[in-house]
């Protein structure tokens, strides 16, 4: 495995994680969380855990993002804090 690539993906994971909790637009936070999940999925597959990576891609990046977007659609896009 290429350690530079590993490091870049890890950095993106951290940036996405911080952005997901600090962003004010909840729809944006949902999308950031999806990006975070996808980068985590890449990290799992770099570490050789292909089954976990598959689950992360389908559950984390796929369905849970849809659930977040559906919840935002039914409530509000703005957060107070």
């Amino acid at each position: 495995m290429i350690w530079q690539l590993d490091l870049i993906i890890l950095l993106i994971v951290i940036i996405c994680g911080i952005a997901a909790i600090s962003i004010r637009d909840l729809l944006g936070a949902a999308i950031m969380f999806g990006a975070y999940s996808f980068m985590m999925c890449l990290l799992w597959s770099i570490m050789g855990a292909v089954d976990v990576s598959f689950t992360e891609a389908s559950v984390g990046a796929g369905v849970s993002t849809v659930f977040f977007v559906a919840a935002v659609f039914r409530t509000t896009r703005r957060t107070r804090d």
Binding site: V50, D51, S53, F54, T55, S58, V59, G62, V63, V66
Partner: peptide
């Protein structure tokens, strides 16, 4: 190969959700 009930089930559910969207 990688996969199984959880992943396949989520993908099947996602297909139905895609239809709903």
């Amino acid at each position: 190969s990688p996969g199984g009930g959880f992943q396949g089930g989520v993908i099947f559910g996602a297909a139905i959700i895609l239809y709903a969207i």
